[in-house]
Simulated scan of single mutants.
Amino acid sequence: MAVLLHRLGRSAYRHRRLVLGIWLVVLAALVTCAGVFGGRLDDRFTVPGTESQRALDTLGRTLPEASGADAQIVFVAPEGHRVTEARYTAAIARAEATAAKAPQVKAVMGPAATGAVSADRSTAIVQVQYSVQRAEVRPSSLDVIEGAAEAAEGNGLRTSVGGSAYGSNGVHIGPSEVIGVAVALLVLVVTFGSLLAAGMSLLPALLGVAVGLAGLLALTPAVSISSTAVTLALMLGLAVGIDYILFILSRHRQQLARGIDPRESIALATGTAGSAVVFAGSTVIIALAALGVIGIPFLTVMGLGAAGAVLVAVLAAITLVPALAGFAGARLTPKPG
């Protein structure tokens, strides 16, 4: 293994433009496939063989309108007023009528029918029942529900919408993820004392995560993949990616400090530290893939998706790091003192 990885590191260093180009082409191809053929994420969780799942299956066969997704519109009257006042009840009734016309809506139940009014009469809830599961709810239908809520706000009511129909159907990278990457970069800069070395640690990890997530999303038309599986793959891929890259990069910089030629140094680092990376990654992949033994579909997909992200992280560590080290050359040598 060490000899094979040594040769791989030396070859990646020598053909660094080709290696980097292959990774970029693969990423572009997967992103294109995900954009053109990728479907929506599916957050329907089933646990075959359990009593609760059999009950849900029976409900879906005998009363499908009660087993679909649901949405709620919450109406709050202005301070000092009640939702039972004539103008507010009229606004709520109009919202009910609008929601009932939304595509895929099976039934709309207002507070008059359900009694969903708070004790102080300041808040009321309208229930919207869909005839389809959340993953099948069309955005246009949700737009109608939101439009009904906004129309009621014109009459002085404060509104908000929610329910299972509004679950996540995509990958959202928000400020928290960006802040996390920025903090990781800061820690790496402080640790290495070099912006170049910190970037060398982070860039292959981010590229590996991008490839892993794009590959996962490209499979959505053929496999039911949940947003939880994507999130887990993102977290594990980034965490182990940085960790594995640090193994090889730290060994490479130590050897550069001893005066070893950059090409031979990265080959040795890939052969020695890279062996540890492959072993560690293999154990993680096996452990995650073992989630399939449980026999719960969504756990199986989560495990295999995360295992795929870890596999890509290992490949990035043993190929991308030597290639990028070739571009950096001797500039990765730590400064004396």
Rank of each mutant, 00 (worst) to 15 (best):
R61W: 01
A100H: 11
G49S: 08
P64W: 08
A71T: 13
A55N: 10
E51W: 06
A28M: 13
R87L: 12
K106Q: 09
G39T: 04
I73C: 04
E85V: 09
R61L: 13
F75M: 08
A55K: 12
P48V: 05
P78H: 08
A91E: 04
R94G: 00
E96S: 09
A69D: 05
G35W: 05
V36F: 07
L30G: 01
D42W: 08
D43M: 06
D42F: 07
V31D: 06
Q72H: 10
T62F: 15
A77Y: 03
L41F: 12
Q72M: 13
M109N: 04
A99P: 01
P111R: 13
R61V: 11
R94I: 01
V83N: 02
L41T: 04
A69W: 09
R87H: 13
G80T: 13
I22E: 09
P103Y: 11
T62E: 15
L24H: 07
L41S: 03
A69M: 07
G38Q: 10
T50G: 08
W23D: 03
D42R: 13
L20D: 02
A95M: 06
V47R: 07
R82Y: 12
R94D: 09
L30P: 02
T46S: 15
A113Q: 14
A29K: 10
A28Q: 11
V108C: 01
G80D: 12
A112F: 00
V25K: 02
G39H: 10
E79D: 15
L59P: 00
V83K: 05
E79P: 12
Q104P: 10
A28D: 09
A77F: 04
A71H: 14
R82G: 15
A34R: 02
D70A: 08
V108L: 01
A93L: 13
A34D: 02
I73W: 04
A29F: 09
E96Q: 15
D42Q: 10
A77P: 02
V47E: 04
A71F: 15
G68D: 02
D70E: 10
Q72L: 14
V105Y: 06
K106E: 08
P78E: 05
G68H: 04
D57T: 09
V36G: 01
Y88A: 05
Q104N: 11
V47K: 03
R61K: 14
G38R: 11
R44G: 02
V25H: 01
F75L: 09
L27R: 09
V31L: 15
G110W: 03
C33V: 13
L41C: 05
G38M: 10
G39N: 08
P64K: 13
R87W: 11
G110C: 08
E85N: 10
M109P: 00
A90N: 05
G21E: 14
A28K: 12
S67Q: 09
S67H: 02
Q104S: 12
R94Y: 00
E85W: 14
G68T: 03
L41V: 06
V47L: 11
L63P: 00
V25E: 01
V108I: 03
R61E: 14
P111G: 09
D57F: 00
V26I: 15
C33E: 09
A86D: 14
T89K: 12
A107I: 00
I22M: 15
L27C: 12
A95I: 07
P111L: 08
E65I: 01
A112N: 05
Q104M: 14
A66P: 00
T89L: 11
A66G: 00
